[in-house]
Design a protein around this nucleic acid. Sequence first.
DNA 1: TATATAGTGTTTTTT
DNA 2: ACACTATATA
Length: 772
Amino acid sequence: MDEREILGKLNEEQKKAVLAAEGPVLILAGAGSGKTRVLVHRIAYLVDVIGVMPGNILAITFTNKAADEMRSRVDKMIGFGSQEIWVSTFHSLCVRILRRYGELLGYTRYFSIYDTDDQLSLMKSIFKEKQVDTRYMKERAVLGRISSAKDELVSPKKYALLNRDFYGEKVAELYEAYQRKLLENNAMDFDDLLMNAVELFESHPEVLGIYQERFLYLMVDEYQDTNTAQFRFLSLLAGRTHNLCVVGDDDQSIYKFRGANIRNILGFEEIYPGAVVVKLEQNYRSTKNILDAANEVIRNNRGRKAKRLWTNEEEGEKIHFRRFLNGFEEAEFVCGEIASEVRAGRRAYRDFAVLYRTNAQSRLFEEKMLLANLPYRIVGGVNFYSRREIKDILAYLKTVDNAADDLQVQRIINVPRRGIGGSTVGKISGYAEAGGISFFEAACEVEKVPGVSAAAAKKVTSFTDQIGVLRARAEVGSISDLIKQLLEMTGYVEELKKEDTEEAKARIENIDELISKAVQYETKESSPTLSGFLEEVALIADIDAVEETDDRVLLMTLHAAKGLEFPAVYMSGMEDGLFPSRIALDSETPAEEIEEERRLCYVGITRAREVLTLTFASERMVRGEVVRNEISRFVKEIPRELVDMGERTNAQGRKMDLSGRGADAALRSAILSEPGKPAFGRTFEMPEASRRTRGTVKNEYSNPYKKVSSPRDTGEKKPPEFAVGDSVRHVKFGVGEVREIKDGGKDYLVTVDFPTWGVKKMYASFAKLKPV
DNA sequence: TATATAGTGTTTTTT
DNA sequence: ACACTATATA
């Protein structure tokens, strides 16, 4: 392509960004302003006009999905030689570097990557060892501190110097122990990938030099989300040439909690004097109304670079605002509207996204989607790779790949049951500690471990033998074969089959899916390795798995939606206390936190191309308690003339007032429920097809109108709605007869006689007993 | 050693 | 509401 072709379809600002080939460049790209387009064109310009070797260009993104998209667009535009261009996420780039040079830091090239579950188990073992009282200190809290420290490149030693109070000293000690264990296990957590890469560069200038020579032109997407470690990583790489082009939007910085440092983008010009700054303010995505709403909301933030998005688009529909009495109705409305739009042929399911602040909100939508038979996909929540059966199998694979990883070995030594208990594991562990060897090595010579009976030793040996066989197999066979072999050898699937429950069935299906993922990996990769497969699995993000081709409604958090766009978007739970979150409102620096929430709101609004609907529920169940909230302040920041406040017709075809008076609550609930049935007392079965992707779901709604007072929240307790002799229903035991009701302190203790289960004692509200 | 049950804690957002 | 842990018991 020549220069004219490359620049042809770009606007003036976009051209400016593409033409600034050398030196530091800051592209402030508003939502929907075509930043990926600019990046791709800029790469084409570098290669085809300036004559840069493709292999000297590096483009960094945050998610695999973004990397894949950029890769395919670059390939399409450049053609020959484009394969040489590096397009990678921060994390996978660091892994590549560390696999190659990690030995300089004491890791082998087979190091494991720990996810949050692994981190937690490791920290738990440290707590146990150091006898930390979990009443005063929580594993997760400590891990949080450590993670923040790593984001800021603070080593355990430095942490100890910076934190001299009692708690800080303890965290420093645990941080130190944690890092030592990771190294012993030949493992790194997510944050280590970056921190260690930086450490490698700083302690080994010759290694840094190699990469500085390779990556002569750097481009970084979503720059506003970079943390201190990522910033340092970039400045080191670009240290020689300063050819660093960053693209971001300070208004879309929503990852402060993960260490993102907004100063990286706000202060870019100070750090790189003479940087070319380009502002992309023309939006090509949304209607004028949607854009105006977004502008008006974000205008309320103080710490931001001045800008205002504009568009040549039509005004379009007004922003819809709908209010409901509770989350159930909210979900019902959203599902109903989607169903009728699709049925009328106006839109496909994939045109819709339902966004929410917290993952917990997804449940209501999921239930209603199932009832309404709408195809949907939930992004995030319980990750496929964090399911127990998947983690078990991966632990086997990791043991085969990296036997130094004690955590994985200990996870599977008794899975499936081999009769090896905690005490035997403890003895082997102590022996390993004393001898300075890994747990697995100790297990291999279990007969030398004091205190282990011959019978127990035999069981341990049969386990280590199995791993030995698998290891030999891994040398010659494929990964999918290896998985099949280990399943057969250990009888893992056999056990599940014997269980013969729906849950076990779902687990077997998940295992099959893992096998096909292994096959996929092996066909895709030119030189597949076990480490490579495990790495891909470890670094996958929920959003990466979303396929645009299948026609489903997408449900996800506002965070997960960043970078995506949809013709029609629902932003649900527009309530003060939920969005902005209670935690933000009650924090020590509410002003700052609310600004972050507002940016999140801005991100949500700007996902919509044509229709944006904001929904509000005045009551909502939060952790088993009914909570009432006011309309989100963000809604009020949208000018009234841009908003349609909505009317809704009831079952009788009468217009219902949704403008705010709650007096008709009883009326509405009466209308919505069928005669003789409670409004939401239905039970439902999950359709077979969705079981696999979401696991099992509990089979009953709770009544949204019932005020639940949990035994712990107040001293008050509600008398049971039944008396001795009445029939009651229990979720698991079915219908039974009440024999006795006693005051059990915080709650009523009820004795019930179930025909098939016998006499059971239980707390009334805890057991959710309902009169029949 | 394995299992059932009572008790406790949690959740805002995640590469 | 739900998951996880500690404890009791077989």
